[in-house]
Design a protein around this nucleic acid. Structure first.
Lengths: 331, 331
DNA sequence: CTGTTAGCGCTTTCAT
DNA sequence: ATGAAAGCGCTAACAG
């Protein structure tokens, strides 16, 4: 592998000059620059990133920590982050936290030990305190799907409460009053907020929230199955159910169909996230759009702006929107 | 940030000794080792990976190149790769090739320029020649979802032809003879092989393959929609359709349901890949299992064995299996 | 505009 | 078993 030294010899200049043309330093005459470029091409020169990182103390890499890689949720986000960073010749190192505090912290340490210039974190279990302290270290972080007042500037998040509100209000407008709810894990921020929105919509029309009609799932399809079986076993009337994410809706609907029920005729459903599959299942899901890919992109842009000094406008909070399809009809 | 020098001073030993304990070199007395370890802990020492990589010419990183990040397909694979490598303290750098030759090559160069120790590639558009030449360079590669005779040792792949055969034979056993087919892109190896298997199953019972009943899709849901609309517009009889992947089945089925057809009563479907959603859509999909996550894991193990000298048994070819659910019934 | 030189933090002979 | 010292390839003052 050719080194910067080989290039300098071939071009008949010094190491420093070669380094200057690589780093687009303007203080190089056009003529010298061309000589160097030619020499690089001839040798098939490729800079050694480790030497660069060691000398410059900048790795051009950003670590991305997500809860899981195998669901339908993080793919679009990762895709946007990769694309935005790649366009600027930075690379992304991935790590998975599995929604567990110990593993999340371990992953953060891991990414830090790999010399990332910055971290994009989608973490649920790590405490606010830890993150606040982390944000004060020399490695910048940006938080996706989480809002912490003390470090709000680096938080990119969705107005989850509003989404929960929109989902339930849609059903209310369709005439529903007895609405069941399958929520996400009670310890996750977004799950709590979505449920809050649901309650607000209910309260707005004077319907009291019935805890018995609320099942705590874990955002996976199977817990939608469990939740639906639970609700159906109840001796309670309900004409609609909102689920805190689309994966749980699909699980819930599959239970109903298996029991011979007609959806949405017998029961209306509203989901959350608008994952790609939502438009291909039957019935097509009425759901709340979660612009997770846009938030991923924004996180990358945030870094380009704050870490690599690009001139970019960033916004921190995203608004969810109701996507009306066929899983919910008027009573 | 503390350096190895600081540690050596605190422990009262030389740089070399500190380096030895970090690298688990045995030639260090237990006593000295403990002193060093204590010094490291006290300083919160974390080795600088760039200096390590520069000096040792080993980065402990592997590049993973996939076609896309936002489908349901690669997530499970990435998850396994990340987990296996992470367990051995290596990290993964991701890049996306978008199924385009130029972009795939660009991504390979990108990963190489980032100093990866090895590459795991799931590429479709890059030529065999390029890959063969690449495999002869100093950076080891392992190919997922692709078989190239000349470098078969580093290929981890599925017996796609058999999968295609199993899908169609299942329908034949159910009594179907008029079977339509929605294939993947004609230029992709796996799409071709799956179609071959379909043809073999047909030939086995003396049914001739009708090109008019075969639509070329692109593996995305929308092309399943297009394919179904095309087939339905034909003035041909068919009682079943096999799709080259589950995403296209879901698109195809959504068209039928929208037209008021009953699935599987009016038309049977068999898919391919067994993506997570296959068991939650209605009807639950009869499909061919594609152990993509196992192949991802195997690719990672292959590297651990061949690059990092772990003692692991690897297998190169995986066999698909039919998963019978509810989307196909006897005629 | 260009060259010289001192590191960046660690690994790895080679001595002892 | 331990230490001294020569790089690994590049960046960034500094000097001219």
């Amino acid at each position: 592998m050719a080194t910067i030294y080989d290039v300098s010899q071939l071009a008949g200049v010094s190491l420093a000059t070669v380094s200057r043309v690589m780093n687009k330093n303007t203080n190089v005459s056009e003529k010298t620059k061309q000589k160097v470029l030619a020499a690089m091409a001839e040798l098939g020169y490729r800079p050694n990133t480790f030497a660069q990182s060691l000398a410059s103390n900048c790795s051009n890499s950003v670590g991305v920590l997500v809860s899981q890689l195998d669901g339908p949720y993080y793919g679009p986000m990762m895709a946007e982050i990769e694309a935005a960073l790649r366009a600027d010749n930075r690379h992304v190192i991935i790590a998975v936290g599995h929604s567990d505090a110990a593993q999340e912290i371990d992953s953060v340490e891991f990414l830090l030990s790999k010399g990332c210039d910055a971290l994009i974190l989608d973490v649920e279990a790590i405490s606010d305190e830890y993150l606040i302290k982390l944000s004060q270290s020399s490695t910048p972080i940006v938080l996706i799907n989480r809002y912490i007042a003390e470090i709000s500037d680096c938080c990119i998040y969705l107005n989850n409460e509003l989404g929960g509100y929109l989902a339930t209000r849609h059903l209310i407008e369709l005439g529903h009053r007895d609405i069941a709810y399958i929520s996400g894990p009670a310890k996750k921020h977004d799950a709590i907020e979505r449920l809050e929105g649901h309650k607000r919509a209910l309260a707005e029309v004077g319907v009291s929230f019935d805890p018995a009609l609320c099942f705590e799932g874990d955002y996976k399809e199977d817990s939608g199955v469990d939740g639906m079986n639970y609700l159906l076993s109840l001796d309670k009337k309900f004409t609609a159910v909102v689920c805190a994410n689309d994966q749980m809706v699909s699980g819930a609907i599959s239970v109903c169909l298996e029991r011979g029920m007609k959806i949405p005729q017998d029961l209306s459903f509203v989901g959350y996230d608008n994952i790609p599959f939502a438009r291909y299942v039957s019935p097509k899901l009425t759901t709340v759009n979660n612009p997770i890919h846009e938030m991923g992109k924004m996180a990358a842009l945030w870094l380009l702006k704050n870490l690599y000094n690009k001139d970019i406008a960033v916004e921190n909070v995203f608004e969810p929107e109701l996507v009306v399809r066929n899983s919910a009809i008027s009573i």
